[in-house]
């Protein structure tokens, strides 16, 4: 016996089957998703993550360029050793009396700044002033890296930190191109992109980022921008501060005290 099925009916049956499959397969996922969203994640202080608005402050007037932050960061976050892999680094600015600016960051500042002068260009000149600038991811409020990621592997958390889902990242490196601050790097082993997370695993447990923890002079301050009694907000209320490359409209959340022309 043969069953006659017209082309139209065949397509109808196929479409019906497909729809049914989607419903059967999708409903359990929808339920688990709803359940998960019903129980929000809390930070260590019992406040929901979305209630926080984390901020950071680097005080260039205090930084002594010891590089302990860089070492602590590499240890805390398993960052590969080597010049090209840095979640955070320290730059040294040397401005000479003839108004030339020289910048260096040997090994990201990991070994401190032992060598001086950094090059023959500086050696032949008279130093006018010199200072250090710590750098890390700015966790921009309008992050260009998140905009360009083709698969949504890099995203902004409710508390405003930009993270990379390394199980999802395809390694196209568009975000590295899009970051104006050079905060991202390509992780050689995993072949995905990595960056500073402000030690997200620590701040959710009520700790502060490793770099801020080890800074001997308090040049790195971490806190909640919305907490009026917090140390970060206190300092910001007393000092004039600035952000890097504000003209790009990325709204960085790392604020700098002791800013100087020519620091990008």
């Amino acid at each position: 016996m043969s069953i006659k099925v017209s082309r139209r009916d065949f397509i109808k049956m196929g479409a019906g089957g497909l729809l049914g499959g989607i419903i059967v397969g999708g409903v359990p996922r929808l339920f688990t998703g709803l359940l998960n969203s019903a129980s929000p994640v809390h930070a260590a202080d019992g406040i929901g993550l979305e209630k926080h608005r984390w901020g950071f402050l680097c005080d260039n007037e205090k930084c002594i360029g010891c590089g302990r932050c860089v070492v602590a960061c590499k240890k805390e976050n398993d960052v590969p050793l080597g010049q090209q892999y840095n979640r955070t680094w320290v730059e040294r600015y040397i401005i000479t009396t003839d108004d030339k600016t020289f910048v260096d960051s040997p090994n990201g500042g990991y070994d401190g700044f032992q060598g001086y002068p950094p090059g023959p260009d500086v050696a032949s000149r008279q130093v006018w002033k010199s200072f250090f600038v710590p750098k890390l991811c700015n966790q921009c409020d309008k992050p260009p890296c998140v905009t360009v990621c083709p698969v949504g592997a890099t995203y902004k958390t409710d508390d405003g930190v930009i993270l990379v889902d390394q199980d999802h990242c395809i390694g196209c490196r568009y975000c590295i191109q899009a970051c104006p601050y050079g905060a991202r790097y390509f992780l050689p082993g995993k072949r995905v992109v990595d960056k500073c997370t402000w030690c997200y695993h620590r701040i959710n447990r009520g700790l502060i980022p490793a770099c801020a923890e080890v800074c001997p002079v308090g040049a790195r301050v971490f806190g909640d921008i919305d907490d009026p009694a917090g140390r970060l907000k206190q300092i910001l209320s007393e000092k004039r501060f600035y952000v890097l490359k504000p003209e790009l409209g990325t709204e960085p959340k790392v604020n700098y005290i002791g800013f100087e022309k020519g620091v990008y």
Binding site: C169, R191, V193
Partner: peptide, 28 residues
């Protein structure tokens, strides 16, 4: 050349499956 260049070429189809539509690249 794009797929060969990817760090994780085995995830190339994520461009279609989980596109981030603000990305010029995902629209490609």
């Amino acid at each position: 050349p794009l797929v060969v260049h990817l760090g994780r070429p085995e995830r190339a189809l994520e461009m279609f499956l989980t596109p981030n539509l603000t990305s010029a690249m995902s629209v490609f």
